[in-house]
């Protein structure tokens, strides 16, 4: 299970995260925006994009 998780993380690391991260974040918020209208969706969008940035840098931290 851990290996599967590592493979998934590998996919979104490095350059790939720049494309997958924002797309996944926008898709999740778009789905939520269809059913609910709240200013917190903006906060969620920021949090998901910041998470993508964090995940892309995680390898640099672990590889130290």
């Amino acid at each position: 299970m851990r290996k599967v998780w590592e493979v998934i993380l590998d996919l979104i690391y490095e350059d790939a995260f720049q494309f997958l991260g924002p797309i996944v974040a926008l898709f999740v918020v778009w789905l939520l925006a269809k059913t609910t209208q709240t200013a917190w969706l903006g906060v969620l969008l920021f949090a998901l994009i910041a998470l993508a940035l964090y995940l892309s840098l995680r390898r640099e931290h672990k590889g130290a």
């Binding site: 209208q37 200013a39 969706l41 969008l45």
Partner: peptide
């Protein structure tokens, strides 16, 4: 992008 997908920004 948020505006485009329907986010109502504060």
């Amino acid at each position: 992008a948020g505006e485009g997908i329907g986010v109502h920004w504060w």
